[in-house]
């Protein structure tokens, strides 16, 4: 299945991309997705699916837009 991943802040330099469509096995969880895109779990603090926060164990669906953010606190 295909999902869109957007990485916020420094995570994009770890993964080598800011936003792209990624082909992943069906029902992959967030936790399983992270190593596939070179993002360390310890740096992935806020995961949003279509604008709403989800947990690491959440299975993803085809067409999801996933936004992954590191720790930040608004300056």
């Amino acid at each position: 299945m295909k999902i869109t991943v957007k990485l916020i802040g420094f995570l994009m330099y770890h993964a080598g991309f800011g936003e792209k469509e990624v082909e992943v096995p069906s029902s992959v969880t967030v936790e399983q997705l992270l190593p596939l895109i070179n993002v360390k779990k310890s740096f992935a603090k806020i995961i949003l699916r279509n604008g709403k926060a989800i947990s690491f164990s959440e299975p993803l669906k085809d067409g999801d837009r996933i936004v992954i953010s590191p720790l930040f606190s608004g300056g």
Partner: peptide
């Protein structure tokens, strides 16, 4: 981490 590459401005996209 590489935080200072974007500093506080990373928040904008979010």
């Amino acid at each position: 981490t590489g935080w200072t590459k974007q500093g506080t401005t990373s928040v904008l996209a979010w």
